[in-house]
Design a protein around this nucleic acid. Structure first.
Length: 128
DNA sequence: ATTCTTACA
DNA sequence: TGTAAGGA
């Protein structure tokens, strides 16, 4: 409305709509300490800062990090930029290692299934 | 209508 | 996290 006004003020429903998540999820993140929106009475008022943090939360989730990991990372958002980067590197390495293990396990499972299928197909040929 | 908290699944 | 309940 006003020319330079509340483009940095968001209601919980605004963010929920924008990112396709529930208002419940946003409240949940706050309860876990990942978000700390201001309050006008009892109603939450989010600023660009909170929105930026939410984006980081969602990205972290998408990459498979726990809310705890994301929380630890966000906690250093203000002060230790360097420490934050170090933590990030550690978590990323951890995640990468985990994914690589999972990938190996999946490849093993895929190979086993293919072998089973091959044997089963052979039996079908001999029989049918 | 919308949001808030609490509690249970 | 969804859903329900009871208020503001």
């Amino acid at each position: 409305m006003t020319p330079q006004d509340n483009r940095d003020l968001f209601a919980i429903a605004d963010l929920a709509r924008e990112f396709g998540i529930s208002t419940r999820a946003i409240r949940f993140y706050e309860a876990k300490g990942l978000l700390a929106p201001e309050r006008v009475g009892a109603t939450r008022v989010f600023r660009r800062r909170d929105r930026a943090r939410l984006i980081l939360i969602l990205r972290g989730k998408r990459l498979g990090f726990s809310l705890r990991d994301i929380s630890d990372y966000l906690s250093l958002y203000d002060a230790n930029r360097t420490q934050q980067v170090s933590l990030l590197i550690g978590k990323v390495d951890e995640r990468l290692a985990s994914l690589e293990t999972q990938l190996e396990d999946l490849q093993t499972t895929i190979s086993e299934l293919k072998e089973i299928k091959k044997l089963a197909d052979d039996r079908l040929d001999k029989a049918g």
